[in-house]
Design a protein around this nucleic acid. Structure first.
Lengths: 190, 190, 190, 190
DNA sequence: GATGAATGAGAATTCATTCAT
DNA sequence: GATGAATGAATTCTCATTCAT
């Protein structure tokens, strides 16, 4: 099935997002041109603009997708009984999200934080969601160290994609190890 | 003292590096133009090119500077008696390096990994130094988890600059907490 | 009819080639900027880059066009019965080609040989075609002098554009004289 | 003997001319930067400007040197008895001049005619000298063809450097052949 | 006789974006 | 839904040249 045929049946818009995310993650946001995205899909630049108003718009759509899953997790978590058990479960679900497209997404976000900061002055609300997620992972009156631990426990999972390269172990092994360490970092008291 | 006067006494080349690092870290490598750097220093773009052959060349000089300090640490560490005590000390010295210009440097490196990967196919040898540093921090026959821990114990310190923003604590408090957590991550057995 | 209207009906790409060849021939390749070409056509530099990937690319297109006509001549000649008569005919056809756009083309090529050598490491195959043309013009076991004569008989025609300037005769008169001399240079024996 | 030592004893100004001519001939006038010339000599660009007021100035000095020898030839020839014998002798002396630095010089001049035309609106008088040389080579009331022949007989010799490349014969063999053909081209009548 | 530092002008090229069809 | 042609603004980089020391 050629690129054109693929598009015919599978939502050009979705395809653009997939390709764009891959290129953004691999070469960086600024270094990825609309031309490059269009060429990968064998469509014209103008076609891109039919589906997305601008390059930033593609990013916003990408972040929005990630945001939905995060928001779902946050909402669910906030309805549960707080405590160490919940924290472990949240971490586990976060890892599940990451295992999917999420890892690539976070690789992109981490590696392009600066560009993103200037694109989305967080109208997307991702920062807000993360804040609530951190709150759930942090016991009341937590020390600065514990607050940092909460942030790191999430970050550890996201870092897998970046740190994996020089370790000789499969990505799955590494992700498993990351889940373990992540859990250890979690503040232990209620 | 005007910008011109300041330059007269303080090595234009060094000034360029300082300003460039700040801009790269704040706005990203690709988003920082030679024009922007030149304007900050009140010199012309051409003057920039008198001191550095290219934009990439500035980055290389920046990385080389960081590399020197890393290499010194590695060399010193490799001459010591291995063991948990050394690992703690290495971590502590790493934090010292980072506290200086280093933090900004690592913020820049993390936030622009992709751009960097394409600029320095590690001819600079930073990756090699880090590998040796990891080796020192990792006991022989370490598990994958322990290998990851070693990497994270360094990363935690570098992440301070990025994660600090939403925590309400001074940068120093946060760095102190980071040192603590970093030490905890270190593999305990000899 | 304004420049814009003219373009509408006459293939911008072709127009660019015509204008570029004229400027290259008149002012030299390096001395002709993309800006100059664009201005002549009342289009923007960016429009130029829509049609040609680079300045060199324009040259390559120009050479390719010349190459086609040369290749046709070579192919035809190689299918004919060799001998003095063929050689005269080849020379005559060469002059015909040159009379068209060709003269300007060769003026450009001669006057910019060095630049060209570095642009087309003869992937275009022009050198190969000329070699075959020389072979046709040279009897078997020709002396060095005769080999040189073959080359000169072609060159004489191409030189017209360059040498004409200070002679007080029309370009047509000169070309006629050149054809004559060219024929005389041809090795006489079979 | 290093480059610096060489300069100490051998007139920097002369060295600059030699190097510049080589670079101009090899890479073209516009494509040869002052930087490139300076680097070849292991001196600074500024030093170049100590010896020559500008890049064009180097060219003018180069042409002036060639002009002297041409002018001498012209002057001598104009004092001789005209006729076929003189014409042959002139041609021969021209070939002698060319054999020296001259060939490189003419390769440079031919390959950069356009640039030269714009640099020296013949204040150097080379064109004038050549005109007189042509007059000597051309019998009174010569046909257009004969006038062209005169020009070609000189050109043939200058072309050697350019056409030699694909012939498998030594440069000396080729030059000898060129002298021969050149003489044949000369108008025969008085 | 020469250098180090700097400049202003201009080069080629790339980019996100637009719009009539 | 998509294309071909074009634009304006920006980018990296190079060049000839200058001048105080």
């Amino acid at each position: 099935m050629g690129a054109a045929a693929a598009r015919k049946m599978g939502g050009t818009r979705a395809q653009i997002q997939t390709v764009a995310l891959r290129l953004f993650a691999d070469h960086g946001y600024e270094a990825t041109s609309m031309r490059a995205i269009a060429e990968q899909l064998s469509i014209t630049k103008a076609a891109l603009y039919y589906h997305f108003a601008s390059k930033e718009d593609i990013v916003r759509a990408l972040i929005a997708a990630m945001l939905v899953r995060t928001a779902e997790l946050v909402q669910w978590a906030e309805e549960q009984e707080p405590g160490p058990a919940l924290r472990r479960e949240v971490l586990s679900r976060w890892a599940d999200i990451m295992q999917d497209q999420g890892l690539r997404m976070f690789r992109f976000l981490s590696a392009n934080q600066v560009a993103m900061r200037e694109i989305t002055p967080d109208k997307s609300g991702m920062a807000a969601q993360l804040k609530r997620l951190f709150a759930i992972l942090t016991p009341p009156n937590a020390s600065v160290a514990d607050q940092l631990r909460a942030r790191l426990s999430l970050a550890v999972i996201n870092m897998v994609g970046m740190t994996a390269s020089d370790l000789d172990a499969s990505e799955d092994e590494i992700l498993a190890a990351a889940r373990l360490i992540s859990a250890e970092l979690l503040p232990k008291q209620s």
